[in-house]
Design a protein around this nucleic acid. Sequence first.
DNA 1: TCATAAACAGTAATTATTCCTACTTATCAA
DNA 2: TTGATAAGTAGGAATAATTACTGTTTATGA
Lengths: 125, 125
Amino acid sequence: MRFSSQREAILSYIRGVQSHPTALDIHASVKKSFPSLSLGTVYRNLNQLLEHHLITAIKQDEVVHYDGNISDHQHFRCKNCDSIIDLEFPVRDIVLEHGPRFGHEIHAYELYMTGICKNCKNETK
Amino acid sequence: MRFSSQREAILSYIRGVQSHPTALDIHASVKKSFPSLSLGTVYRNLNQLLEHHLITAIKQDEVVHYDGNISDHQHFRCKNCDSIIDLEFPVRDIVLEHGPRFGHEIHAYELYMTGICKNCKNETK
DNA sequence: TCATAAACAGTAATTATTCCTACTTATCAA
DNA sequence: TTGATAAGTAGGAATAATTACTGTTTATGA
């Protein structure tokens, strides 16, 4: 995989934010420094970066969100403000403990939660 | 919510299979007994059934899959044969145990796994 | 420096899902 | 049992996220 300046800009943008941006978000932001950046290029690069495991995708929503944090963690989406928040649960442990008895080869897992985030909960009080 | 014959046919089809069908699958199958059934009707009913918690949706794939089993369970998708298999992990326990310390109100959770299923693993041996 | 494979921009195409409209049907009160 | 009406349906148009295509540009290794 080559590293074009567009690709680097896209990757460093994703790595630099906590917000789990969508392809459109990424396009809008990176376009500021690359005015000619096309949306197709964003998608192509996202797929390349995914294939090389440099980023991950969150697909539970209608739109795909991307995450530059590739450490083992989970996601929580607030139904009120729609933000996606990183959380850490010991999912790996229960997958390793209970997984083997089903007989399948489990390569990856993902725990996704929804509800009302701390901020929204306090605001409505 | 009224119960039209189409709606009943769609629900009983989903409840009667283990395969986690897509809207197209459901349309194709239920159309055999309701030749005039339109795809729009299938989608509208799926959304109604979801709202009333009579079915659940699996959104990790490119296409949405539907599940008539509303008990607490998890899903595993085989990357080889693409089938989705029900599994039971004690996810509820770790969400109840570790969830509260983050301060968010967790309403729902979903653990999704991918890998190679038992059958495909044995076939390639 | 050059050859070439990969990447790019721009645009067209695809596809799952939703929306819209006119018609039909289930339900419930009189 | 009959009407009124709100909900449901079929069929097709519209939407929107994503992918594919084309001709041009650029990164990389020899």
